[in-house]
Amino acid sequence: MPNFETSTEWYEQSSLLLKARPTTARITSKYSVLKPSASKVQKRQKYLDKRKDAPKPPSTSAEASTSLTNPEELVATFTLKTYDPVSGTCLQYETNKAAEVGRLIGSLGRLSKHMAALPEVAEDLSAPAEGAGISTPKLEVDGDVRMSSPAPGAEQKAGGGKKKKKGKK
């Protein structure tokens, strides 16, 4: 159950999984707000105390102290999980940044096109997505999808002649 470091990687692998198993794979996203556990509160308290006691470096103290003030602060996370019950594949990505939500839901939208069996390339290109041998890098993406290199393991899973779309520069 890989937990990806970047949403880009998660998106790439998920889209491969959806290409291979469009009917059975599903994407679950969870927004969860939790109260921190007792040990977490303790840890934070300890950290704060340490901060207080330590001699403050002159300039940074004012800003640094704003980052965490309340040890009981809630823990909010947004987790994306692509799961295919047939092969048992499960791909995860987790974030706690509000700034990412819009982009992540955007990639959910793009992945839903695999589910709907629509061509993934934007409609206005009017080119058939499949069989267009030289697939142009026109995935309507924020430009970050092609940054990381494709992982060979998942490529094999995708099977079929659909690998062309990946691995271009």
Partner: peptide, 20 residues
């Protein structure tokens, strides 16, 4: 799908106010 996900993103962004 496109229209749906545009709204979905709006609702999601507004709803997940607890994130950093």
């Amino acid at each position: 799908l496109d229209a749906f996900y545009a709204r979905y993103a709006e609702v999601g962004k507004a709803g997940m106010s607890g994130l950093k």
